[in-house]
Amino acid sequence: MIIAEQKPLDEIKGLIADAENVLVVGCGTCVTVCFAGGEKEAGILATSLRMTSKLDDAPKEVTHTTVQRQCEWEYIDPLADEISAADVVVSIGCGIGVQAIAERFPDAIVVPGLNTTFLGMPTEQGVWEERCAACGECILGLTCGICPIARCAKQLLNGPCGGSQDGICEIDPDTLCAWQLIYDRLKAQDRLHLLTEIQPAKNWSSSRDGGPRRITREDLRLEAEAAE
């Protein structure tokens, strides 16, 4: 899922400095699960902004609402009235949610309340780790289910660099060396021969390097939309 964390309150205050009416919009999907931008966090943020604006002698009207998914029109369309009444909308969805609201409501001033950080998962209560870089050409079949694009600091495709020591990546004592993990797993599965094959230069055109990406599934499109 998409992992995000809330921006520092001072930064959010700066983003809404000129507004009197502020609407905080939470999202009920990924950012709820990672405790960054769900209904509960929307309420806490709205309260914090209200209180801090009072302390600053510039009280603001801060309301909040949460939709099931900020990244689909059908869930955000019902917010039209609330959004038009607000001077600024603070989206605490991921970056997709912020942009969806901006795209759907051309007059709205929308600012992000979160930093969208990575595609990952919780590895223990309170700890999330990156797992996928959405490179568009999955190689997990070659690396026994451990992604060196997302998890090696240098995105190496042909084994560990010289900075792998005791299973740890040289850049950070809390980061495991992805290639040590791959090696250990392939060894345990008696498939080390996979590591002797040279992986050629990767085609990055399916990644972000190829520009903004788009998938079109003609079999799923509705006729009217397809004709547009």
Binding site: G159, S164, L195
Partner: peptide, 9 residues
């Protein structure tokens, strides 16, 4: 570097 056994490969 580690994994030591893999280095020759």
């Amino acid at each position: 570097g580690d994994p030591f056994e893999y280095r020759p490969y």
